[in-house]
Design a binder for these strands. Structure first.
Lengths: 137, 137
DNA sequence: CGGTATCCGCTGCGATACTG
DNA sequence: CAGTATCGCAGCGGATACCG
């Protein structure tokens, strides 16, 4: 018997509410997590470098997100006992195994931003004029 | 001059706060969006089917998420004027172009759930015993 | 069936201040 | 430099009720 999901006989399936893989999906499906994994693809980076690279992130969000990723075994945190202090974050093997996917999501966003913006404008324009189609004839 | 980001001369880069591709990334980096795109990979599905498939989603969240995806041109909503009403959602070409990525994220979550759970246990155990390493010798 | 409308509790997140 | 601690508000998501 397994404990990844809470009901008796089942399969690992993120569609299921109780399945632990759902929590993994939730951890990945986060803009900061996605950008952090992508940012760390080419090697370790310091906290301050990450903060500047992820434009707009607060120190608190960065710390929190990195902590969750460290707990999940996605990143490795290394403290160098120097003055001033120096902390580096790098992807673990596990983290590297998902980095391609996260890079893909980021790149897709950048490559299709024009189509999305166009779709949004068209939708908003239609929403002004026509009322939204409602079920029932 | 372009309008995808708000500063003058720049590149499309989701790392930048003002860049429109950041909003696209935010739209994708959402557990329900990810699962919905994956669920619709093999063809149109009705609202009620989706609600049952995405275990734990509320009607409100499902409606909201689908609306955003429709606005972004990821899904197409079709109303059949029958009684009882019937509304189907399907991926657009744009949506299909990102479906592989979303399937990958879902599958990665399922395939690595064991490693993640083990990492979490180890982390939580360490957190009880050792105090967290702090910067500065 | 597939919504919309409303209320509402919780927490996620930003802002700020402080520390080893 | 890389955090931690605290406060306070906005917004999200759940619960419920109603509708075409």
């Amino acid at each position: 018997m397994d404990t990844k999901c809470d009901a008796g006989n089942w399969s690992v399936d993120a569609y299921l509410r109780g399945c632990a893989s759902r929590t993994v999906l939730e951890a990945l499906a986060n803009k900061w997590t996605c950008l952090l994994i992508d940012a760390l693809r080419h090697g370790p980076l310091r906290f301050g470098v990450l903060r500047r690279k992820l434009d707009g992130i607060t120190q608190k969000s960065l710390t929190q997100t990195l902590r969750v990723m460290e707990r999940d075994g996605i990143v490795i945190r290394t403290v160098y006992p120097t003055i001033p202090p120096r902390v580096e974050y790098e992807l673990s093997d596990l983290g590297r195994s998902v980095a391609g996917l996260m890079e893909g999501v980021k790149r897709w966003s950048e490559e299709h931003v024009d189509e999305i913006l166009t779709a949004r404008e068209a939708y908003d324009l239609r929403a002004q004029e026509e009322p939204r189609p409602v079920p029932v004839a």
